[in-house]
Design a protein around this nucleic acid. Structure first.
Lengths: 151, 151
DNA sequence: TGGATATAAGGGCATATGCCTGCATTATTC
DNA sequence: GAATAATGCAGGCATATGCCCTTATATCCA
């Protein structure tokens, strides 16, 4: 038999394979976004806010599937740099709603074509068929939904 | 038309889909490893060292596809906690070779069955066929090889 | 209405990841 | 063999991610 049943090989680990792929694709997108100083994580936050303004930290976190407090910190960075504004919710005193500042909107408009190019290049390198299959595999992947502390 | 051509939707981003999947599967493996206090990243380092002792930081980094200096820091944590020992290479004064301590070996032995269970559970939740397809998709994925600062 | 419970965030702490720079050591080249 | 280049790491700095605990509101229910 090939890999011994008891051998715990790094290369057999599904988690490793996925993490490795995530790092690789992130490097691709990050390199495209570099002229803007944004990384893909930050770009996605701006994109989410561009789609829907006035979103709470929790909503943002859920939308981007990150841990709540982690999102708070990331948004904090963007706020510090003037791309995002946080204002208290008029209906809920606990909540603060995030929205793009004009500067943030501008940065997003600048970054969007770079993202598109990364997306296009990834599609070109892998072929529409493989990309479709990959996306389906990822979307269908089950992990048992271990909270990021929502539920 | 469905999603406007100019709409940069978070959900269309291949990078986002991949990162999200990586976080999800990491949560699964991390939760299984929790009794040992290890996370999947640390477990993989121990596993790599278990497969081959006396590896330089650079070799480890390349094997696990992480940035060199990042690997140095992660190994540093494991060294601090007594699971890994770093000794100067006898043939190259610049290099330090990492190996498991008995304590590290023991921890690995303790963690391996938990990893196996995570791996098994992932396989069960997704089915052998889908897992195979996913792994193939990931392995075949091309991103243009943007160094993690090796080459 | 007042107390119990639930929810939104923030702060602290720790690891993970990556960049850039500097330092020591080895390898190369003339 | 000395000057130069390449290599292996460490350190500093910044973001990313996640956990825990605390605080401020909001809600609900007796």
């Amino acid at each position: 038999m090939s890999p011994n049943k008891s051998s715990v090989g790094v290369d057999q680990c599904h988690c490793f394979a996925m993490r490795k792929a995530a790092r690789q694709i992130s490097r691709l997108y990050d390199s495209h976004l570099q002229p803007t100083g944004l990384r893909i994580t930050q770009f996605l936050i701006l994109a989410a806010l561009n789609q829907e303004q006035g979103v709470s930290i929790n909503d943002l976190a859920e939308r981007l599937d990150t841990e709540r407090t982690a999102m708070g910190k990331m948004v904090g960075v963007l706020e510090r740099d003037g791309f995002v504004r946080l204002r208290p919710s008029p209906t809920d005193g606990r909540s603060r709603l995030a929205e793009l500042t004009p500067s943030g909107k501008g940065l997003f408009e600048q970054a969007a074509p770079l993202w598109r190019e990364a997306q296009r290049q990834f599609g070109e390198m892998n072929g529409a068929k493989d990309v479709r299959a990959l996306r389906q595999n990822l979307a269908g992947m089950k992990t048992g939904d271990l909270s990021t502390s929502f539920e």
